[in-house]
């Protein structure tokens, strides 16, 4: 049985675990996502197919698939929270729980709001488990852009969801750490190197688990003196500001963002801010979920800057970056 798939199956109750265990092995290693919805068939998502297993785990037609009971969702939700929903309040508020083994489980239910802010999610009716896989060596094609033996570069990995960004980040962090470079990983969602996952991070790799990204970056710079900081899914201005502080402190970054194509990178203000200073050396666009982890295009830092500010614009002409003459 595929190890990552087997570990994901352990999150389910005995009935569903048995069904999932019956899935033919050639499919097991392809499963990216396991979806449970109340009173709906159990769904397995691969890069190219959606599978509906029957009672014996064999893929079948949607109307012959195994139906998930409402109680099973509730039971699994509490199990994922180690029986203590209160201890996962912050994650639940953000819409996910990280299961043992690093599998991220998205939670869909009714939001409880207070003064316009989501404080919790109740009446959970869908759970979507993303199978977390460690693929050592998958970042080999990108390492040359990141590190040429003398100079370290900053890289932005971009792809649509399920494009393999987190798996690449994990492998790149491990590769650099094993090459003797001090690395910090800000693992806000405990997906890159989850606790109890057994993923090898290397001796020189410090993993800051559950730290908010901006705070984690600042703390790492102040206390751990890393040469490279890894951060998954940069998404807002405060995180971009923390990255900029890191750039100005002489730290390099490997970041990931959601983006389907090159143009998407320039539409988001926080990314434009990152490109403005000319500190981002490469953006690596990955192919979509059908071919996770594969490079589609590599864009140089100069190209990124030009795309944002027009050809040959000096770095830092917007957003208060370094003035051109000081370059």
């Amino acid at each position: 049985m595929d190890t990552a798939y087997a570990s994901a199956c352990n999150c389910f109750n005995p009935r569903l675990k048995q069904i999932l265990g019956g899935l033919p092995e050639e499919y097991q290693c392809l499963v990216q996502e396991i979806r449970l919805k109340k009173a709906a068939p159990l769904v397995l998502v691969t890069a190219s197919h959606v599978l509906y297993p029957n009672l014996y785990g064999q893929p079948t037609l949607p109307d012959r698939g195994v139906t998930v009971f409402s109680e099973e969702i509730d039971e699994m939700f509490h199990f994922l929270c180690s029986g203590a929903v209160y201890s996962h309040s912050e994650e639940i508020r953000k819409g996910f729980v990280t299961a043992k083994g690093g599998h991220r489980v998205g939670i869909v239910g009714k939001a409880i709001t207070e003064k316009g802010q989501i404080v919790s999610v109740t009446q959970v009716d869908t759970l979507s488990l993303r199978v977390c896989r460690d693929v050592p060596g998958c970042g080999a094609a990108i390492v040359s852009y990141l590190y040429d033996g003398r100079r370290l570069n900053s890289i932005l990995l971009a792809s649509p969801p399920a494009g393999g960004k987190t798996t690449l980040l994990r492998d790149l962090a491990r590769t650099l750490a094993k090459d003797g470079i001090r690395v910090c990983v800000i693992d806000e969602r405990e997906e890159i190197f989850p606790a109890e996952s057994g993923f090898d991070s290397g001796v020189l790799c410090d993993v800051l688990r559950s730290f908010p990204k901006a705070e984690g970056i600042r703390r790492a710079i102040r206390t751990l003196s890393p040469r490279v900081i890894f951060c998954d899914e940069i998404g807002d201005e405060s995180e971009a500001a923390a990255v900029m502080e890191g750039f100005h402190s002489g730290v390099r970054f490997v970041l990931s963002v959601h983006a389907a194509q090159k143009e998407d990178l320039f539409l988001r203000p926080c990314l434009r801010r990152l490109f403005s200073d000319g500190e981002m050396d490469f953006a690596v666009l990955l192919k979509d979920r059908h071919t996770p982890g594969q490079i589609r295009q590599v864009i140089s830092g100069k190209e990124l800057r030009n795309a944002v500010f027009g050809t040959d614009s000096p770095a830092g002409c917007l957003y208060g970056g370094r003035p051109a003459q000081s370059l």
Binding site: H78, C81, G83, A84, V85, Y86, S89, I92, V119, S120
Partner: peptide, 10 residues
């Protein structure tokens, strides 16, 4: 019932 709701409810 312990553990089945958030901190305030608990």
């Amino acid at each position: 019932q312990f553990g089945k709701s958030g901190t305030v409810g608990q």
